[in-house]
Design a protein around this nucleic acid. Structure first.
Lengths: 261, 261
DNA sequence: ATATCGTATTGACATGGATCAAAGCGGCAG
DNA sequence: CTGCCGCTTTGATCCATGTCAATACGATAT
C-alpha cells in the first residue's frame, strides 16, 4: 500500500518501503553533490571543494519513488527541498470543487518543494511520473549552511528567482496564447530542457498524458490531441503516442512569434 | 521628461528629478524600517532592535514615483529590491509580437524586483499606477545582512516562497476558471489585501483600468466590464467606475466554490 | 460652459475551444 | 492469444468569450 494508506490503484507502489530514505555513507560518495552531474542546474555551482563537502553532508539522504507515488502532498508539513536526481515529476493543485491543475513538470537537476517555505506547509502535490530518485535537502540546514557559504546562498536565491520568472512565462502563455501556440511553446520548452541535459533536442519521450499536458496548458485533452495532429499534418513534428520527433522546430518558433492573427 | 528620455505623454512626470533617490538621515527616523507600519508584511518581522537598526542602515534610500512612471523596465540590470511604502504598482511583460500581460499588482508592504535575481536583469516592467514611494534595498547588501541575521534570511525566503504560491494560484485561475469566477477571485483578493492594510474590506478604489484587470485575468476589457455589470445586477457589488463596494462577499465566494457547471 | 480624450458600457455577431460521443490503439494480465 | 482498460484520436455540436462598433461617462483643459 502507499503511504497515504489508500489502496494502490493501478500503480505498482508495492516494493519500496514507505518512506524510502536511504542514508548515504562515506562509501557511497559516487552519488554525492561533489560528484553529481547536475552541478550547474542545482545548488552546487561555484562552490569550493570544502564548501561542496559541507553541502554533501547536508544532502544526507536520498529517496526513491515509483511511478505515480507522491513525493509530498498539499497540506503536509514542509521540512525539506528535493533535488530531482533521476526521473520526472509533476506538481499539481486540487481545488475544493474537484478541479485541478498541473502547475509544472520537473526533471533532473530541478528543485521541488519551495512552495512550502512561506507557510511551513506544502501548497501542492508532487508526483513521480516515472520511477525517480531525489536528494533530500533539509531546509533548516540549507538556511544555516547558506549563511556560511555565500555562493550557496546566492545559488539558492537564483533558483527561486528563476522559478518566479518561469511562472511569469506560464502566466503569459495561459493569459494570451491560443491552443496551438501553447503546445508549440510547451514542445520547444521540453526540447530545450532535454537538450540542456544532453539528450536529443529533436526526439523525446513525453512522460505525461494528454490530459496532464492539457491541464498544464489550460486546455482540454481533446484540444491537445487535435493540436498534435495538426502539427503533424503541417510537418512540424512526428507523433506516435508519447514519442515526439521535432521535424521543424523553426516552424514551431515562427508559430509563436507570428500568431495566426 | 521621464528617465527614458521619451516625451512625457499624457502623464505628469515633470516635477521630480530623474532618479529621485533620497538618502535617509538619522534625523528622518520616522521613515525607517524600525518605525515602519508595514512591519509584518515586509522583511523586518521578528527582528531584534539591533537587527532592525542594521536593516535600517541597509534600506538607505527611498524613491518617489509619479503615476505611470517606471520603477524598472525589462532588460535593465538588477541591483535592488523595492519595498512599496505607499502607492500602487503593476508589473507586466511585453512579448515581441506586441502582446503583453499584467503579471501582478503590488501595494504597500509588498516587494518588487525579485524577478531579476536569477539573471541579474529584470524580466518585467514595474509601473506606478498612482504616485508612489518605495524603499530601495540593494540586493548584495541584503544577502550579506541575511547571512548575519537568521530571521531576516528566513523572512526573505518566506516572501519569495509566498510569491511562488501566489503565482500558482494565478495559474489555477488562468487555467481553470471562467470569466466571472476570475473577476470574483480578483475582487475578493483585493478586498482581503486592503483589509489586511487597515482599509475597508467592502469599499475600495481600483487603481487600474478594465484593460489592466483584463490583462491580468486573461480576459478582454469588454468581458471584464460585462462581468462587473452582471455582478451589479445580481446584487453582489455596486460599481461606479473604479469605485467598488462589495455588497455580498459571501455570494462572490459561493460563485468561486460552486461554479455554474 | 464646451471640447477633448481616455475610459467604460452595451449590443450584435463570429469563433476557438469545450463538450459529448464513438471508435482506434497498445500494453498488460490472464 | 485474447480481452480488458487506459489512453488517444476524430467527428459533430454548442457556448463562452473575443471582436467590432456605437455610445456614454468623467476629468481636464480651453
Amino acid at each position: 500500500m502507499d503511504q497515504s494508506g489508500r489502496p494502490a490503484e493501478r500503480e505498482r507502489e508495492t516494493e519500496l518501503p514507505n518512506k524510502s530514505v536511504v542514508p548515504v555513507t562515506l562509501a557511497s560518495v559516487k552519488l554525492a553533490c561533489s560528484q553529481c552531474s547536475l552541478h550547474e542546474l542545482c545548488l552546487s555551482e561555484g562552490l569550493s571543494k570544502e564548501e561542496l563537502a559541507k553541502l554533501d553532508s547536508l544532502v544526507g539522504a536520498r529517496r526513491k519513488l515509483r511511478r505515480q507515488q507522491n513525493l509530498y502532498r498539499a497540506g503536509e508539513p514542509f521540512e525539506a527541498l528535493y533535488a530531482v536526481r533521476t526521473g520526472f515529476f509533476k506538481t499539481d493543485i486540487l481545488l475544493e470543487d474537484g478541479r485541478d491543475q498541473v502547475t509544472g513538470f520537473q526533471m533532473a537537476g530541478e528543485i521541488l518543494g519551495m512552495d512550502g517555505i512561506g507557510t511551513e506547509v506544502h501548497s501542492c502535490n508532487a508526483v513521480a511520473l516515472e520511477d525517480s530518485e531525489v536528494c533530500v535537502i533539509p531546509f533548516a540546514q540549507l538556511e544555516q549552511l547558506s549563511r556560511e557559504i555565500q555562493a550557496l546562498q546566492h545559488n539558492f536565491h537564483k533558483v527561486m528567482s528563476r522559478e518566479l520568472v518561469r511562472d511569469q512565462g506560464l502566466m503569459m502563455l495561459l493569459g494570451t496564447m491560443r491552443a496551438e501556440e501553447r503546445l508549440a511553446a510547451f514542445l520547444l520548452n521540453m526540447s530545450q530542457r532535454f537538450t540542456s541535459r544532453g539528450y536529443s533536442p529533436a526526439e523525446f519521450h513525453l512522460r505525461m498524458t494528454r490530459e496532464e499536458i492539457g491541464s498544464y496548458l489550460g486546455l482540454k485533452l481533446e484540444t491537445v490531441s487535435r493540436a498534435f495532429s495538426r502539427f503533424q499534418e503541417e510537418g512540424y513534428i512526428a507523433v506516435q503516442q508519447k514519442h515526439i520527433r521535432l521535424l521543424d522546430a523553426a516552424g514551431l518558433k515562427k508559430l509563436l512569434k507570428h500568431p495566426p492573427r
